[in-house]
Amino acid sequence: MNDGRLFGIRIRIHLLFWGVIGLSLLMGMFTEVITLFIIVCIHEMGHVAVARELGWTVTEVQLLPFGGVATIEEAYAADPMDEIVVALAGPFMNIVMMAFSWACWSAGFWTEEWALFFLKSNLIIAGFNLLPIWPLDGGRIIQAILCWYLPYRKAAISSLAASTMLAALMFGIAGLSLHMNVAVVAAYLLAINIQATLRFPYQFIRFLMEKYVRMADEQAVRALTVSPTATVIEVSHLLCRGYTHLVYVRGAGMLPEDELLQAVLFEQKQDTPVSKLLKL
Rank of each mutant, 00 (worst) to 15 (best):
C104V: 05
C104A: 14
C104M: 15
A107Q: 13
A107I: 06
F109H: 12
F109R: 11
W110I: 01
T111M: 04
E112L: 12
W114K: 06
L116V: 08
L116P: 00
F117A: 09
F118A: 15
L119Y: 13
L119F: 15
K120N: 09
K120E: 10
K120G: 00
S121N: 11
N122V: 07
L123M: 15
I124N: 02
I125P: 01
A126D: 11
G127R: 07
F128N: 11
F128G: 06
L130N: 03
L130E: 07
L131N: 03
W134E: 00
L136P: 09
L136F: 03
D137R: 03
G138Q: 03
G139S: 09
R140P: 07
R140T: 02
I141C: 05
I142H: 01
Q143M: 11
A144I: 01
L146F: 14
W148P: 00
P151Y: 06
Y152C: 05
R153E: 13
R153H: 14
A155L: 04
S158K: 10
L160H: 05
L160N: 05
A162I: 13
A168T: 06
L169V: 09
L169H: 02
M170D: 00
G172Q: 01
L176Q: 12
L176F: 14
S177D: 10
H179N: 15
M180H: 11
M180L: 15
V184D: 00
V184G: 00
V185L: 12
V185S: 07
A187R: 01
A187I: 04
L189F: 04
L189C: 03
L189G: 02
I192C: 03
A196M: 12
T197R: 11
L198H: 13
F200Y: 14
Y202H: 11
Y202G: 01
Q203G: 15
Q203V: 04
Q203P: 00
F204E: 05
F204L: 09
F207G: 09
E210F: 08
E210G: 09
V213Q: 08
V213M: 06
R214L: 12
R214G: 03
R214E: 13
R214S: 14
M215H: 14
D217M: 08
Q219P: 00
V221M: 12
L224G: 07
T225S: 15
S227I: 04
T231H: 01
L238S: 07
L239M: 06
L239G: 07
L239W: 04
R241L: 02
G242E: 02
Y243K: 05
Y243W: 07
